[in-house]
Simulated scan of single mutants.
Amino acid sequence: MDGTNESTQGNFILLGFSDRPHLERILFVVILIAYLLTLVGNTTIILVSRLDPHLHTPMYFFLTHLSFLDLSFTTSSIPQLLYNLNGHDKTISYTGCAIQLFLFLGLGGSECFLLAAMAYDRYVAVCHPLRYPILMNQKLCLHMTAGSWLLGGVDGLMQSGVTLSFPYCHPREINHFFCEAPSLVRLACTDTMIFEFFMYVCCVLMLLIPVSFILASYGLILITVLRMHSAAARKKTFATCSSHLAVVGVFYGTIIFIYMRPKSYRSVAHDKIVSAFYTIFTPVLNPLIYSLRNSEVKGALRKCMDQCAALSHD
């Protein structure tokens, strides 16, 4: 096994969907369309949230960062996947794999904490509406957002650093469409049991703690809503919170399915499908969920389109 310890030399091979070569052209077109929709949808949310003064609130401040996270998250893996699907070259350099792994873990971790921050924002808005401007001040929003980015970055740096420190066996074939930590660990030529336990603990901290915080926030919101006497107020509150709950359900559901299942229940084929869902399609769904179910966003979009139409006629 000469050369197995040269962990920082040579390229990796991303097998991706090469077991179904007859589908690669179709997948290329579908994924390209999904990626373009992600770029357009999330960029639109960012621009509308920044351009419309009525959306300069903590809720849309967090939403802007969520859209930017989705843009960065999907861009960390999809261009490489499209390149691999479009030709016979399935390789990725060691450096490219390291960058992809760090961005994927770091951005994913940041989104976990940002969604928890958004749940707290909704809790304050519903349960303490009179104190909302004081409690959710600009300084707190900046600290919560910066904390989300920082915690995600630290987690990504730690996990990617340890994952890439292992010696890898040849051939370096990653049975996935991007450099994912569990797939890389399977290539290690050494015992990884301790690291897998460490990675599981990190998943508990990065997933279950924010999820618990979100569930507690929405539990208190539900109690407050049930005490409201006005049906219109209840309907408005549910409409505002349902968008965030839908995003939370899709994001956390797929991540927990991938990283927190027992080993005996894991399947590479299932992992690829679920990973494709939260890497490719979830960033497409998020702007649709927030725009279709949010009257304020739809109103801001209509205003921007009317202004653009007026300028084009001048």
Rank of each mutant, 00 (worst) to 15 (best):
G253D: 00
F197K: 12
S212M: 15
E196G: 02
P262R: 05
A232D: 12
S264W: 07
P262I: 08
K235D: 15
Y290K: 00
A216W: 14
V248A: 09
L205A: 14
L301V: 13
R302F: 06
Y265G: 04
A232R: 14
V247L: 05
H229M: 09
A269L: 13
D271K: 00
V211A: 10
A233T: 07
I194C: 11
T254M: 03
Y259C: 01
F213Y: 15
A231S: 10
E296D: 11
S230Y: 04
M193Y: 10
R266T: 08
F277K: 04
C241A: 10
F198D: 05
V248N: 05
R261D: 03
L285Y: 04
I223N: 09
V204D: 09
Y278R: 03
S242I: 01
I214L: 07
V268K: 02
R266M: 02
F213E: 05
A231V: 12
F195G: 02
P262K: 09
V225Y: 02
L222W: 08
Y200E: 03
V201Y: 09
P210M: 08
K298E: 01
S242Y: 08
D191L: 12
L245Y: 01
R293E: 01
V284N: 05
V211K: 03
S212T: 14
H229L: 13
T237F: 03
L222D: 06
T282V: 15
Y265W: 14
D191C: 09
S291W: 09
E196V: 03
F198L: 11
L301D: 00
F277L: 08
T237V: 10
I289G: 01
R234Y: 10
I280K: 00
H244L: 15
D191K: 11
A300P: 02
I273K: 04
Y252K: 05
S242V: 09
I209E: 06
F195C: 01
K263D: 08
F213S: 12
F257Q: 01
S212L: 15
H270D: 12
L288A: 11
K298W: 02
F198M: 12
S243L: 07
R293C: 12
F195I: 00
M206Q: 13
I258V: 15
L292A: 14
F277C: 00
H229V: 02
T282L: 11
M199D: 14
I255M: 04
K235V: 04
F238C: 10
R302A: 15
R234K: 15
P287D: 05
S291N: 02
A216C: 12
K298A: 12
S212N: 10
A269V: 13
C241K: 02
R302M: 14
K263G: 14
V225T: 12
V250F: 13
P210Y: 07
M199P: 06
L285R: 04
G253I: 00
F238A: 13
A231L: 11
F238T: 10
L301N: 05
I194K: 11
Y290D: 00
F195E: 04
L245F: 03
S264N: 06
L292T: 13
S275C: 13
A232Q: 13
I256F: 02
S212K: 04
I258K: 05
M228N: 09
L288Q: 01
T224W: 07
K298F: 00
V297G: 03
S212G: 15
Y259D: 00
Y200G: 06
I221E: 06
T237A: 15
